[in-house]
Amino acid sequence: MIIQALAFYLFAAITVASGFMVIASRNPVHSVLFLILAFFNAAGLFVLMGAEFLGMILVIVYVGAVAVLFLFVVMMLDINFVELRQGFLQYLPIGSLIGLILLVELVLVLGGWVITPVAKQVATTPIPALDQVTNTHALGAVLYTKYIYLFQGAGLILLVAMIGAIVLTLRSRPGVKRQSIAEQVNRPRDAAVAIRKVEPRKGI
């Protein structure tokens, strides 16, 4: 148990510290790297709870794909760091407002657990128990039966967002040469080469 507790405090402390560094570090690339560290430690916390599937998915989706794109964009930005720091304090009111709203929501959730002990029981006991069924099976059994419409709805929303992003950035530029591989492969030999019998000292 002691090892688990130590690991929990280690992961939790690093998560909070790197979360702070995300907003505190001067260089945006460092911010993204700290964000990745925070994701990692959150995945570690998931694994400690026995939610191994969620932990791995967190690493695959957020660290392996989303954060790579973040890093990709941030690295390409041409940022003047001095200018960036000047406007820092003017965002303080709206930032603290958002932080306050998140805090109130968290307190509401935790408060709900305190008021109705049943909710806490439901949340803390996995159904069915971990030693009977693996994470993946348990999640799939709930997600694809009980919540199938919500799941499909979420998928549709993501699809619409993706199509929207593609439509916004799609420009049809005239005069661009494009390679059509099917056309190249289907071109008959006669269209490309001609065999001539060349007489000596004559040329073509």
Partner: peptide, 15 residues
């Protein structure tokens, strides 16, 4: 239990 996902996660971190 999630060996494949672990491998996939690690290989996606290689970048």
């Amino acid at each position: 239990n999630v060996g494949v996902l672990y491998l996939f996660a690690i290989s996606s971190l290689g970048v």
